[in-house]
Design a protein around this nucleic acid. Structure first.
Lengths: 337, 337
DNA sequence: GAAACATGCCTAACCGTTTCGCTGAACTTC
DNA sequence: GAAGTTCAGCGAAACGGTTAGGCATGTTTC
């Protein structure tokens, strides 16, 4: 078995209290003993049992993150950033994938509670609210929503301005002279999906244009469906001259579809999209897209979460919105007369 | 504070042992008492403390994964697959990123132990052995190595045949007539890095060719260094006509470098690489590469790990090697005379 | 020089479970 | 009806830490 504090105490010839004091630097210990203790710790490869410490002090050093689609490189980056952010606060990160399934999300959240995680970072898919427990008596794990919001939840949230992101990307296409602009959207039932649709439509009507339904296909934020949708869209007799794609993963599919059909980007069709995933920089042409400050978002989310963990339900729910920046590549060309 | 098992016992007028028996269904309890206990549980809103349970039973339902570079989409996929595999066995996954730093890896491993994770999936960077404790008396967490191996560790491992992968990719280039073949390699101190170098060299010498040192640059398996290395390599007065790149992330950088220099792939330079990351399919030209069966590998790793957790050190260390498949794209062209 | 205080470490109680061994009652068996 | 068997339920000892309180020392203060 692993070494315990008693083994260390015995080896160093001191009491467990002294070992504890050395480990936690919670009391003065003379240099001599201190050195002996540290040596014993090293020799035995001792690491304090988190379970015991938690039982006594009430702190588990676990924060859970539940993402909606771990196979999406965007969320993989989120997890990467979260691991770093959480580690900086002294926590370890438990990762779950709800795979966009509300039932899975519910199951996961009760599991998170059973594991006595101290906090929860949640990219919600919709099944969450009831699972989190809105009843007054049932205890809620401190939670921060990431990327997407829920209606009337009273939870802290960190998002980006999705409306502005798609508005800008679409405006950019319009300013290049495009009028027949199509879209591969995300699901309407997600706050991100909806806001990006609305942002695009707003940009269009602001310039007196309309979005033709036949130029719009709804995707699921994943690559394969977007690929087929793009093929369907672009193989019509009359096709849009530009496309707004609601996320990066779908943009990969769209670019592949364009190439497979034998069209050229940007000569035949301009493409702009939202969100940043690794691999998108490898695309040729270089995709014009709005990028999200993932690391900053996640850091802020963890900051809010840790604060909430400390202060409990006392504080009002906070909602931090990050701006996204338009990164101009060469996937968009002016409309040819 | 939350109710404890003692509160429940007192309320129901039974002992804590009985409450425990009811909760866990670990022993027969007469219907009458059982009902009283359940009622008390409901009234008090009692939920067992996982921490106490963990301390007592030693089961944490936690498996840790430590990857060498979480920002590499390849490992992000590994984590994704691991989450699913581990969940299927009833565990939750704690994710750590050693960021290719041996000291970080050491620190993380003692943390894994402190969290009383029951198993460890490790993509080692080298600092691991001592941290895992090779002394007979110090307790080792059940561990399976993934992707990379360590010398004489006696640990279970799941890898791919890196030698064969680079051998095949290189042979493919040679068969197209290329003779001046360059390489962007991984670090020699990693088993993957070394095996891929050796596989390439073997393929070359098997066909009577030699690898010219000036055509080789060593990378770090990341994009940026590979980008610069490729520029350096290809901007020489005399440049290689084909390039073997030791992983997918570096391939993204290389393709970007080729485009930025103004060369064309495959007309001016052919490229083949190893390993699969999402986003690589979006590349144009479509990259010729060897792909790894990530999901199968990870599933096998988890299977080995769970088995090891059950059987202890009794079993001999097992090493499972997966083959990789050459996926031919259009990033390689026959050498022009 | 005795009282008061500071220092440095130890002893032991406690956190909330699970679980082993035990008790006494009820039920068989001859 | 005494001895042996079951069996539901209990008491208490772990599990591995933290920490309040205590106890020898050594040092200051009048």
């Amino acid at each position: 078995m692993a070494a315990t504090i008693k083994d260390v105490a015995r080896t160093a010839g001191v009491s467990t209290a002294t070992v504890s004091a050395v480990i936690n630097e919670s009391a003065y210990v003379s240099p001599g003993l201190r050195a002996r203790v540290l040596e014993a710790v090293r020799d035995l490869g001792y690491a304090p049992s988190q379970a015991a410490r938690r039982l006594r002090t009430g702190v588990s050093e676990l924060i859970a993150i539940v993402v909606a689609d771990l196979s999406n490189p965007f969320y993989a980056r989120v997890v990467c950033a979260a691991e770093a952010a959480v580690a900086a606060w002294g926590f370890a990160l438990v990762v779950f994938n709800s795979d966009e399934k509300p039932e899975a999300e519910k199951r996961i959240i009760s599991r998170v509670r059973a594991l006595s995680c101290e906090g929860l970072i949640l990219v919600p898919v919709g099944g969450a609210i009831s699972a989190l427990g809105r009843d007054a008596d049932s205890w809620r794990i401190p939670t921060v929503l990431l990327g997407r919001t829920l209606e009337g939840d009273g939870l802290d949230a960190v998002t980006i301005d999705n409306f502005a992101a798609s508005y800008h990307a679409t405006s950019y296409l319009i300013d290049l002279g495009h009028k027949r602009i199509g879209a591969i959207t995300g699901p309407r039932h997600l706050s991100t999906g909806l806001a990006r649709i609305e942002g695009m439509q707003s940009a269009m009507s602001a310039k007196g244009l309309t979005v033709e339904p036949r130029f719009v296909r709804s995707g699921d934020f994943r690559e394969e469906v977007a690929y087929s949708a793009a093929r369907g869209l672009l193989e019509q007799p009359e096709r849009p001259t530009a496309l707004y794609v609601a996320n990066g993963l779908m943009a990969l599919g769209v670019m592949r579809a364009i190439a497979d059909i034998g069209l050229r980007c940007p000569e035949d069709v301009s493409v702009a999209s939202t969100d940043n995933i690794p691999g998108i920089r490898g695309l040729r042409p270089n995709l014009t897209r709005t990028e999200h400050p993932i690391v900053e978002m996640v850091n802020e989310a963890v900051r809010l979460l840790v604060d909430r963990m400390k202060r409990g339900e006392a504080v009002e729910a906070r909602h931090v919105v990050f701006p996204s920046a338009l990164v101009v590549g060469d996937s968009c060309a002016p409309l040819r007369a």
